[in-house]
């Protein structure tokens, strides 16, 4: 079985994340780029399949600038067998539709039984890629799953929605997405880090994938930085703080 895990490099949510206010694109110098935590969980789900059955092959795939290699190396250190980096200057600022088309072409050319993605990235937060990719590939999508169960022919799991919980399954090949309820990604051990350097990391371009540039595109019109919030009143409770707060709320018509 071949499992392709989608990896996205994102700005660390522990740091200050910035947009370039001229282009609307991410200011990649402003914060440390890391592998998105949700992708580590997606990879963990795949690696657990590999733990149970050594014949499972796990391929990490990322579309991104040259720095995305670091995210793929991390995936290899965690235990992925190979990595594929879709790298093309023309992909800077690619929208969801284009990203889906490109990843779809890369996944289709690689071949797969299962694609595992995160349910939403911490930077874009669109949360549509997995289902859009499934539509592009003509397969089932089983999204927002906490814990995956995979047998030879199907995948199943429980998805939590705003309205309850849904138990669902899909025949392979399929695309699934993992949520924060999925197990945390394992830490790479020393052996993993050393062997990651020797594992294959292929770079492919759009020309090699044969992806054209068609379809509607969303573009940024304007970007405005919100003025930073400033701290207001801060008091140390001397027994009257609650009363003062109640008066503050009342005077601002909040209670």
């Amino acid at each position: 079985m071949k499992i392709v895990v989608l990896v996205k490099q994102v700005p660390d949510t522990f740091g200050e994340r910035k947009l370039d206010t001229t282009t609307g694109l991410l200011d990649r110098d402003a914060s440390e780029p890391i592998i998105d935590e949700i992708n580590e969980r997606a990879l963990e789900a795949a690696l657990q399949q590999k733990d149970a059955d050594k014949s499972v092959e796990v391929v990490a795939l990322s579309m991104g600038p040259s720095s995305a290699t670091d995210a793929l190396r991390k995936a290899l250190a965690m235990g992925a067998d190979r990595a594929i980096h879709v790298l093309d200057d023309s992909l800077a600022g690619a929208d969801v539709a284009r990203t889906t088309a490109v990843i779809g072409a890369a996944v289709a050319s690689e071949g797969f039984d299962l694609v595992v993605a995160g349910n939403e990235s911490t930077d874009g937060r669109g949360g549509v890629l997995a289902s859009s990719l499934a539509e592009t590939l003509g397969v089932a999508a089983l999204t927002s799953i906490g814990e995956l169960t995979v047998d030879g022919t199907s995948v199943s799991g429980v998805r939590a929605t705003e309205y309850g919980t849904v138990t669902a399954r899909a025949d392979l090949p399929a695309v699934v997405s993992a949520t924060e309820r999925a197990p945390e990604g394992r830490f790479p051990n020393f052996k993993g880090i050393m062997t990651a350097k020797k594992k294959p990391l292929a770079t492919v371009t759009l020309a090699e994938l044969g992806v054209g540039d068609s379809g509607a595109r969303s573009t940024v019109v304007s970007v405005a930085e919100r003025p930073a919030r400033t701290a207001g009143v801060k008091i140390v409770d001397d027994g009257t703080a609650a009363t003062q707060l109640a008066e503050f709320l009342a005077s601002n018509r909040l209670i």
Binding site: T100, S132, E135
Partner: peptide, 10 residues
């Protein structure tokens, strides 16, 4: 989005 060849505003 994929079915219509549409663009997404998320």
């Amino acid at each position: 989005v994929a079915r219509l060849g549409a663009a997404l505003l998320a």
